[in-house]
Design a protein around this nucleic acid. Sequence first.
DNA 1: CTAGATTTGTTCGTATGTATC
DNA 2: TGATACATACGAACAAATCTA
Lengths: 257, 257
Amino acid sequence: MSVISRRKPFQKMKLSDQILADLHQWIARENLQPGDRLPNEKQLMQHYGCAKGTIREALKALEIQGFIKMQTGPNGGAEIQPVSLDRVLEQLRAFVHFQTITFQHIYALRGTLEIRLAENVAGRLTDDQLARLQANIEECDRLQKSGDYAKGRRVEIEFHDILTEACDNPILTVTCRFLNDLLRDLVSMRTDHYGEHRNFGQHNIDSHRILLKLLREGDRQKILAAMQEHMCEVEAYMLRADHQLMGKPGIRRAEAG
Amino acid sequence: MSVISRRKPFQKMKLSDQILADLHQWIARENLQPGDRLPNEKQLMQHYGCAKGTIREALKALEIQGFIKMQTGPNGGAEIQPVSLDRVLEQLRAFVHFQTITFQHIYALRGTLEIRLAENVAGRLTDDQLARLQANIEECDRLQKSGDYAKGRRVEIEFHDILTEACDNPILTVTCRFLNDLLRDLVSMRTDHYGEHRNFGQHNIDSHRILLKLLREGDRQKILAAMQEHMCEVEAYMLRADHQLMGKPGIRRAEAG
DNA sequence: CTAGATTTGTTCGTATGTATC
DNA sequence: TGATACATACGAACAAATCTA
């Protein structure tokens, strides 16, 4: 017999969605942790009194939401896993897909949050992270000298992605990564002149070099000041681009046809 | 014949996931807008050369991600819809479900972002929104006088939710709403003494009254100053709670057994 | 390395419910 | 009211992956 009431109040809801909601409650109530398993498909079919396809739709939903990972074979089935950062970032991208985003929108948050990020990671970067920051700067330098400014724009944002790895505040991490992703999408639409591109690229390389030096030394105050200055300069440059793109929607152009 | 290559590179991926990825590309490439329709199940079955169940799993995934809405009947099928704010917030909640969150984590962002929010909505609130802010304060006042401080904590956060409705920056909106949701989850775990609860509630009511008055008048500078002061006070109160909860995980307690 | 057991992944056929005309 | 078109759901079967003996 089904645990889920098929009576009036939910009669219009799809059965798989009712099961999904019930599984959500189950996970929360039992406080399931990564590594725990859900019952297998056969047991769930019996428990909810429905067909395999229906159960699979509910499990598929949980899988898409990132709560579980499916495995075949003996001892397979649905295993609880933590919702990954990447999955959340994908969902956030999907959200802004239908929004109009400008550099101004991004920097209303980014200007201050990157400073909070610098404050958070100051003195806590691992040797590996510092080495990758160094490598990132060198790659930007190569791209700068080869004249591939467009790719330079995208790679230099990874500098800030690396910083988020050392952040111990999950909320700050996901927000900064989100803003970086938005920035990457938006800079790819820019139509700057070569000269402006080159100046900006060199400026960023210099700023990142200073930041890395200070991050190695670990002086919190100097790090904050440097990041603040970096953000101010970058913001000013970016906002000039909003005028270029003005009239055209932000992240995705809605060109008819 | 299937459009999707079943050869080596993707051979290990589930068929329904390949179709999901292909539909994602389709939506992005054709730049589909809300109201546009995807082909019906039969056409998709023919196009991808697979069975109903597989198509349904892929469509279910798109539905969960919020890209489409399914409809029965003639002219039914999958219709594109914008990814809703609520769905993104749900996904963000799912993410932090497996993270340890403290008030300190939240206020590293909230202290500044709520000020940006106030800056954004200053002078742009509708009469309806102002009326609901007023009603919210009055409800908090009732709860305060009746001694239901726990519920007062939750309702007073809605004051800030209403502010986000007037925000024209989608990124700021989703971030502030996210922080408000986290706050609601976290304050429900507090174990304050009655006296402290009462003082804090009265303080918030007073602050919100001042904010509403200034929002009605529309003086940007005064609004910013008032919100800044409000956030400082609230943060100081909230951080005291981190010590109470210290040792215990943040959003969800991981009590063994 | 092979063989069998276990569990998910996929298919087909059919029936039912629901919205539109 | 009935006919049509579509999603929703069921059930049985087979295919593929993975673990264990």
